[in-house]
């Protein structure tokens, strides 16, 4: 009789540690998995032009022309330059406010145009685009600071759904990717 009683006791399975095991596994997988986030430079392509439609007229002085040739050399407003000088030049161009006749009339009219050759390395193109974007980011940050936010990111997050983005209103990012030359195809 006492023998039987003892047997019944041992058949019980200890389940108290199960939660620990489960948590351990969970933590292990949480630590080991990397959920890769896609990063990159966002751009919006210009809509397709109809055959009879001409590009909208823009004053010459409002466009900052950046040309990158097949060797990766940069031509800034018809003057030889370098990739790392673009940022400064873009800021000068956009925040000119009509002072220098070579640069833009106003911030919201300024356009930066990037044109590349077919043989231009993609690497250089991305660097160029990056510099232009960084110029805009810098200007937006400055503008947001004027409006009382620590930086543009904070300003944007603080905006309500109906509120206008004053920074973007003042300095819109107008980056134009030039139409490829029809003659250079093929």
């Amino acid at each position: 009789m006492p023998l039987r009683k003892k047997e019944r006791e041992t058949t019980e399975i200890p389940t108290s540690s199960m939660a620990d095991i489960a948590f351990l596994l969970l933590i292990f997988f949480l630590v080991t998995t990397t959920i890769d986030i896609d990063t990159g430079i966002n751009m919006t392509l210009p809509p397709k032009l109809e055959d009879d439609q001409e590009p909208p007229p823009v004053k010459e002085r409002n466009i900052l022309k950046i040309l990158v040739n097949a060797q990766g050399q940069v031509l800034l407003e018809d003057e030889p330059s370098a990739v790392n000088l673009i940022r400064e030049e873009v800021i000068k161009h956009v925040q000119n406010n009509g002072q220098d006749p070579r640069y833009a009339e106003a911030s919201n009219k300024a356009i930066v145009s990037i044109k590349t050759d077919r043989q231009t390395p993609y690497d250089v193109y991305v660097q160029t685009l990056d510099e232009v974007w960084m110029a805009y980011f810098t200007m937006w940050d400055n503008e947001a600071r004027v409006l009382g936010s620590p930086n543009y990111e904070a300003y944007k997050d603080g905006l309500g759904p109906d509120e206008e983005n004053m920074v973007r209103e003042k300095i819109p990012a107008a980056i134009s990717l030039a139409e490829p030359d029809a003659g250079s195809e093929g």
């Binding site: 751009m43 919006t44 809509p47 397709k48 991305v126």
Partner: peptide, 12 residues
């Protein structure tokens, strides 16, 4: 552009 997919991202 012909297709109308204008939102692009240069992955980097």
């Amino acid at each position: 552009r012909e297709a109308g997919t204008l939102r692009i991202n240069y992955s980097s």
